[in-house]
């Protein structure tokens, strides 16, 4: 599997670390009740097909990416930077 890192180019998956489903939104930091945190921590859809995922180029530029991957074919369709340098241009 190869991931097109927006900073480093097309790199082998071994350089990246998977951080999970990008579609699961973290509750607000102000949220003190356990309820909204349970699905965030424990519940995942395990989708077949297109999946937005968080990856870190840990053994590269260390940036976090939002990659769109087909979970059936492992094809990475797109990868964009997350974090302060990310977002739509």
């Amino acid at each position: 599997m190869l991931i097109p890192c927006p900073v480093c180019g097309l790199r082998d998956v071994g350089e990246f670390t998977y951080w999970g489903d990008a579609g699961v939104k973290r509750p607000s930091h102000r949220e003190k009740e356990a309820g909204p945190w349970v699905p965030y921590v424990y519940e995942r859809k395990n989708l077949r097909g297109k999946h937005e995922e968080i990856w870190q180029h840990e053994h590269g530029c260390r940036q976090f990416l939002i990659a769109t991957r087909n979970t059936e074919t492992h094809e990475v369709l797109d990868a964009k930077l997350a974090g302060p340098f990310g977002g739509d241009e």
């Binding site: 930091h29 940036q63 976090f64 974090g83």
Partner: peptide, 9 residues
């Protein structure tokens, strides 16, 4: 790093 990139950019 994860928190800074994903939770609180």
């Amino acid at each position: 790093e994860y928190l800074l990139a994903i939770a609180w950019p």
